[in-house]
Write a protein that binds this DNA or RNA. Structure first.
Lengths: 129, 129
DNA sequence: TTGTTTTTACGAATGCTTTCGTATATACTT
DNA sequence: AAGTATATACGAAAGCATTCGTAAAAACAA
């Protein structure tokens, strides 16, 4: 029997994951410094959170050296997909359409981005075989 | 000085708001029954939640009769928009594009829905003036 | 009127997330 | 070697969301 899927991260955990995804395996010090560019967070607060994340299986850590190095256990896209599905259910009763319409409607989307979406739609449509 | 914006609903509160949006002003009994179609929830649990929602300004209630009637204070679209913006920031660092691509890519979207989105894109493109 | 049902009100327990103080170990500096 | 800086570990406090027990009031039924 293998382990279950990694659990859903809390908001603070997600904030840390974003940093791990962007910069790769990092020390607590590094992550805490990054967090403090946004808002004040105590070092031991970040440490504790990252320890919990390792416990939960959200992050892996290398403890060979004194300074432990943490890395995200799950990929960014996988995690986003899971969070998105859940959010979709809760806030939009599962209607991806409604949500996409809201997102496109209210976020001023650039022409280039619209082109990208059109390209994606064409790709999806042609995959129908 | 007027009141601040209505606060962000928690997950349980959102569940109740969905019912209020769908069925309009409702009693605690009605909402609790609806919730119980999905999962078991005690009556006083629902009552308490709805009282808190009234406190927070998420719902308004009419207390003229013995059975209080609650209604959502904010509209569904407004609330969805606010939740979406926040979710976008947290999970997708604010990139609506990335999220839309994920949503379209992984949710099997029907041809009709794709057409709707194409229509929306055309509308956005033509609004450029 | 007396007992039953339905409703609101209140408070408290539980559980989860976040924050941080303190202790201890390890490395670095002089 | 002694003192300072940096790291992990641990536990507990604080805050918030959720759940529910109990009491009191109001309506209804016999």
């Amino acid at each position: 029997m293998s382990q279950n899927q990694t659990p859903r991260p809390t908001e603070s955990e997600l904030e840390i994951l974003q940093i791990l995804w962007e910069y790769g395996p990092s020390s607590v010090r590094f992550v805490n410094d990054k967090l403090n560019e946004e808002r004040e967070v105590g070092y031991t607060t970040t440490l504790k959170l990252m320890q919990i994340m390792a416990d939960k299986g959200l992050a892996r850590r290398n403890t060979e050296n004194r300074t432990h190095i943490y890395e995200a256990a799950a990929g960014e896209s996988d995690t986003q997909q899971r969070l998105l599905n859940r959010f979709l259910d809760r806030a939009f009763k599962g209607s991806a359409m409604k949500m996409v319409m809201q997102a496109l409607g209210n976020h001023k989307t650039s022409p280039e981005e619209l082109d990208e979406i059109k390209a994606l739609i064409r790709r999806i449509e042609s995959e129908k075989d």
